[in-house]
C-alpha cells in the first residue's frame, strides 16, 4: 500500500508539473501573439536609435544653417548700409537732397538808380554770364554745392537770359541774386576777392557785391519742375 501511495503521489506530482508547464507555455504563446515580438521590438528600437541620430544631425544642421543665415543677414545689413550711404553721397552730389555746412553767401544786386549815368544801363543789368562766371569760380575753388536764389545748381541746370530776366532751372529769378556755396569759406572768399577777380570786376560795373562767410548754410534740394 505505501508503495502504491507513493506512486500515486509521484504521478500526481508529475501531472501537476506537466499542467504547470503546459499552462505557462500557453500563456507565453498567447501573450506573444497579442504583444510585440522580440524581433519587431529590436527592429523598432534600432529604427528609433537611427531616427534619433538623424534628428540630432538635422538639428546640428539647423544650427549651422541658422548661423550662416545670420552671417549672411549681417553681411546684407552692412551692404545695405554701405549702399545707403553711397546713395546719400550720390544724391547729395546730384543735388537731390538738402545739404548743410559751412560756406559763403554772395549777393549780387543791381545798383540803385542813382546819378551814376556814365555807365550804360544795359551794363548795369546783371547778366547771366556774371552768374555763370561766379559759378565757375566757386566750383573751381572747391565748392561742393551751390544754389542761386533757392535754385539748386545741378548738372543739367541752365542759367540763361530770357529777355530781361534770368531763368535758372526754368525758374525766373530776379535780383538780388543770392548765391550760396558750401565749401571751404576762406578759399571761396579768396577766389572772389583776389585782385583782378570777379568782385573787383563787378564793382567796376557798378554792381553791389556782398560776400559773407557762414558757418551753417542750408541749401535746398533740386526740385524738378
Amino acid at each position: 500500500m505505501p508503495q502504491k501511495t507513493s506512486m500515486y503521489i509521484s504521478i500526481m506530482l508529475v501531472a501537476a508539473v506537466l499542467g504547470l508547464m503546459l499552462s505557462l507555455q500557453f500563456r507565453a504563446v498567447n501573450r506573444a501573439s497579442s504583444g510585440i515580438s522580440i524581433d519587431r521590438a529590436q527592429e523598432v528600437t534600432a529604427e528609433l536609435k537611427r531616427i534619433n541620430q538623424d534628428k540630432e544631425d538635422l538639428s546640428k544642421e539647423i544650427n549651422d544653417l541658422t548661423s550662416k543665415l545670420n552671417q549672411v543677414k549681417q553681411g546684407q545689413a552692412e551692404a545695405v548700409a554701405a549702399l545707403q550711404s553711397e546713395l546719400n553721397k550720390v544724391r547729395m552730389n546730384a543735388g537731390l537732397i538738402t545739404v548743410s555746412g559751412s560756406g559763403i553767401e554772395l549777393v549780387l544786386d543791381k545798383p540803385d538808380n542813382t546819378e551814376d549815368t556814365q555807365i550804360p544801363p544795359e551794363l548795369m543789368v546783371i547778366q547771366d554770364e556774371y552768374l555763370l562766371s561766379a559759378l565757375n569760380e566757386l566750383w573751381g575753388a572747391g565748392a561742393e554745392a551751390i544754389s542761386i536764389n533757392g535754385q539748386r545748381i545741378i548738372a543739367t541746370t541752365e542759367i540763361r537770359q530770357a529777355g530781361s530776366f534770368i531763368n535758372i532751372n526754368l525758374n525766373r529769378v530776379v535780383p538780388p541774386y543770392q548765391i550760396l556755396a558750401i565749401g571751404n569759406p576762406q578759399e571761396l572768399m579768396n577766389t572772389l576777392e583776389m585782385t583782378g577777380g570777379l568782385q573787383e570786376y563787378w564793382r567796376d560795373l557798378g554792381i553791389k557785391v556782398t560776400i559773407e562767410k557762414h558757418e551753417d548754410l542750408t541749401l535746398p534740394a533740386y526740385v524738378k519742375k
Partner: peptide, 28 residues
C-alpha cells in the same frame, strides 16, 4: 489523481503572477 494533478498544475500556471519570459518560451 493524474487528472487532478494536471488540473491543479494548470490552475497554478494560469494564476501565478510570474509570466514566462518570451526568450524562454521556446525552451519551455
Amino acid at each position: 489523481l493524474a487528472l487532478l494533478g494536471l488540473g491543479l498544475g494548470a490552475l497554478i500556471g494560469f494564476y501565478i503572477p510570474v509570466a514566462l519570459p518570451q526568450d524562454y518560451a521556446k525552451y519551455m
